[in-house]
Design a protein around this nucleic acid. Structure first.
Length: 321
DNA sequence: AACGGAGACAACCGCTCTGAG
DNA sequence: TCTCAGAGCGGTTGTCTCCGT
């Protein structure tokens, strides 16, 4: 199919010469681009309007930031991608001076490989099967799906017997337990949301409503929820079995992600105030040190973000260059 | 020095969306 | 409501550079 403008006339393709760049730049600086289809003719270029537009957006625009991506930008890309998928234009909106094309290239050439190297599926951000298999041999780390497809449930190893093995790999959401328990032979339980950036630690309280948690993340924020609860080790397996219940309606990753996004959107609309206040929920969220980007949340239809850079398991992984 | 592979980046292609008529 | 052109987006391909052999 292609675009008609190129087939109608003799159009140059391939890399742009400095002279062409100068012509386009001068024209747009003087007249603006107006209708892109008319730009080539007015600027004296043997290019199609589409090509001119692309050249301007990806290369000539004065507000572009050139050079390598910073670590923060990498984190941002990974985190937003985890929620939105290959929505490069949307992702790029959260990276001032970067274009969708640039983000896309960076993802394909760099981040994707890093994620794979760390055992994550770059499409779903879930653990790769081989990586899961390895973790199944580790009794102290359990992976599950929460809002993010890639999450870790970890148990303090100093308290857990070697035969405590609960496979909750396929649980798409985390449901907090509603039962209270006697406080003997306690172990500490913490829940670490394991993306490349995020760590969640949920506090389980006595009368907690067993609502599905769909707390999500934001960009450039360092909010923390430092929480813990004590359970008797004898009940650990029961607690986990009760607490991590798959409620997925589809095993298709796309369906799961979509439903998660829709649910996240509902949380934004309905529960953001209560989550932020911590008054009507049993989660005590602290945003004291956060520069959480609410614009981002609204724009990407996400609920409030809660994660901690320092504690993220993925942060402890090395990004092989 | 020549060659080939890998990586990074630029640009194109094909499709969808949107707004005007 | 339909059609069409323009704009925008994501996937893919092309090109260049670097590096190892």
């Amino acid at each position: 199919m292609g675009h008609n403008c190129c087939s109608k006339q003799k159009i140059k393709k391939g890399l742009w010469s400095p002279e062409e760049d100068e012509k386009l730049l001068n024209h747009i600086n003087t007249f603006g681009h107006g209708s892109w289809s008319s730009v080539p003719k007015l600027a004296g270029l043997q290019r199609c309007g589409k090509s001119c537009r692309l050249r301007w957006i990806n290369y000539l625009r004065p507000d572009l930031k050139r050079g390598p991506f910073s670590e923060i930008e990498e984190r941002t890309i990974v985190d937003v991608h985890r929620i939105l998928g290959n929505k490069w234009a949307q992702i790029a909106k959260h990276l001032p001076g970067r274009t969708d094309n640039e983000v896309k290239n960076f993802w394909n050439s760099c981040i994707k490989k890093k994620l794979i190297a760390q055992g994550f599926d770059p499409n779903t951000h879930n653990l790769l099967p081989s990586f899961k298999a390895n973790n199944n041999n580790n009794n102290n780390i359990y992976a599950c799906n929460m809002f993010s497809p890639s999450s870790f449930f970890s148990v303090n190893s100093s308290h857990v017997s070697a035969d405590t093995s609960i496979d909750i790999l396929e649980a798409p959401y985390l449901t907090l337990p509603s039962t209270s328990s006697p406080h003997t032979n306690h172990v500490d339980i913490s829940l670490h949301e394991c993306s490349t950036i995020s760590t969640y630690e949920f506090q389980v309280q006595e009368q907690i409503n067993p609502n599905v948690l769909t707390e999500s993340m934001g960009i450039n924020s360092v909010p923390t929820i430092s929480t813990s609860h004590l359970y008797p080790i004898s009940e650990l397996e029961n607690i986990v079995n009760e607490s991590f219940q798959p409620i997925t309606k589809s095993t298709n990753p796309k369906d799961i992600l979509q439903s998660q996004q829709e649910e996240a959107c509902e949380v934004v609309e309905n529960e953001k105030p209560s989550v932020l206040n911590g008054a009507q929920t049993n989660i005590d969220a602290s945003f004291g040190s956060s520069n959480f980007d609410l614009d981002f949340m609204e724009c990407t239809e996400l609920p409030c973000g809660m994660y901690n850079y320092q504690l993220s398991p993925m942060d402890q992984l090395t990004w092989n260059g």
